[in-house]
Amino acid sequence: MQYSKFTLMVIMTLFVLLSTFTTTEAATKVQFGKKASGKATWFNGGDAEDVACYGILQNKNVDAKDSWHIAAMRLSQFTGGVKKACFECLRVTAGSRSVIARIIDDCSSCSSGHVDLSLSAFTKLAPKKQGVVKITYEFVRCPSSGDNLKWPKSPAVKKN
Rank of each mutant, 00 (worst) to 15 (best):
M1S: 11
M1P: 06
M1Y: 14
Q2I: 13
Q2G: 14
S4P: 07
T7M: 15
T7Q: 12
L8F: 15
V10I: 09
I11Y: 15
T13Q: 11
T13H: 10
F15A: 12
F15M: 13
T20N: 11
F21N: 09
T22C: 06
T22D: 08
T23S: 13
T24F: 15
A26G: 11
A26C: 08
K29G: 11
K29A: 11
Q31P: 04
Q31M: 04
F32M: 10
G33Q: 05
K34C: 11
A36G: 15
A36D: 06
S37A: 12
K39W: 12
K39R: 11
K39D: 14
K39G: 06
T41Q: 09
F43N: 03
N44D: 14
G45F: 03
G45C: 03
D47V: 07
D47T: 13
A48C: 09
E49M: 10
D50P: 07
V51L: 04
V51G: 04
A52V: 02
Y54H: 07
G55R: 02
G55E: 00
G55A: 06
L57S: 03
Q58M: 09
Q58T: 13
Q58S: 15
N59E: 12
N59H: 11
K60F: 10
N61T: 12
N61D: 15
S67P: 04
I70G: 01
A72H: 00
A72I: 08
L75I: 06
S76N: 10
Q77I: 07
Q77N: 06
T79G: 05
G80N: 02
G80D: 04
V82T: 13
K84C: 00
A85R: 03
F87N: 02
E88K: 15
C89F: 05
L90W: 04
L90G: 01
R91C: 05
R91H: 08
T93V: 09
G95K: 06
G95N: 08
R97M: 07
S98T: 07
S98F: 10
V99H: 04
I100M: 06
A101V: 03
A101G: 04
I103P: 00
I104W: 01
I104N: 00
D106R: 01
C107S: 06
C107M: 00
S108K: 13
S111Q: 12
H114K: 15
D116T: 07
D116F: 06
S118D: 01
S118K: 00
S118H: 00
S120A: 14
S120T: 03
T123M: 09
T123C: 08
K124F: 08
A126D: 02
P127E: 09
K128Q: 13
K129V: 08
Q130W: 09
Q130F: 09
V133P: 00
K134R: 10
Y137F: 11
F139Y: 12
R141M: 12
C142N: 05
P143M: 14
S145V: 05
G146N: 04
G146F: 08
D147L: 09
N148K: 14
L149V: 13
L149D: 01
L149F: 11
K150P: 01
W151Q: 03
W151T: 03
P152A: 10
P155C: 01
A156K: 06
A156L: 03
V157P: 03
K158V: 07
K159I: 13
